[in-house]
Computed example of a mutant assay.
Amino acid sequence: MPSLRKRLMALDPTTVSTVLSLLPTILEQANKTIEKLKKNKRKDGTPEGAVADTRDPAARIAELEAAAVQQAEAVKLLAEQHAITIDALRKEAARLDRRLRLMTAVAMGGVALGLGGLVIALNLLFR
Results as ranks from 00 to 15, higher is better:
A94H: 12
R127A: 02
I120K: 15
V119K: 13
D12H: 14
L122Q: 14
Q29T: 03
R7N: 12
V106N: 08
R127P: 00
A68W: 01
A30D: 12
E73C: 05
A105M: 07
Q29D: 04
E48F: 10
A50P: 00
A121T: 09
L100R: 10
V119M: 13
K91Y: 00
L37Q: 08
A93H: 09
A10S: 04
A66D: 09
V111A: 13
L77Y: 03
G116M: 03
D44E: 15
S21N: 04
V69H: 03
G110S: 11
P2C: 04
L125Q: 05
R101M: 14
G110N: 13
V111D: 04
I86H: 00
R55G: 02
V75Y: 04
L115Q: 06
L20Q: 10
P13Q: 09
D44Y: 05
E63C: 04
T15A: 13
A107D: 09
T25W: 04
A107Q: 11
H82K: 15
R42F: 09
K76E: 01
V19M: 08
T54M: 03
L118F: 15
N40W: 11
N31A: 14
R5N: 14
L124C: 03
E35Y: 05
L64V: 03
A74D: 09
G110W: 08
M103Y: 12
H82W: 09
V16R: 14
V19L: 12
K38A: 15
L125N: 07
K91W: 02
L4K: 11
M103N: 14
I34K: 03
L102V: 11
S3C: 07
N31V: 12
V16Q: 03
F126G: 00
G117D: 11
L20G: 01
Q71G: 07
L23H: 05
I34W: 07
I86D: 00
I26C: 03
T25C: 05
T85E: 00
R60V: 10
L20W: 03
L113E: 06
R7P: 01
L27S: 08
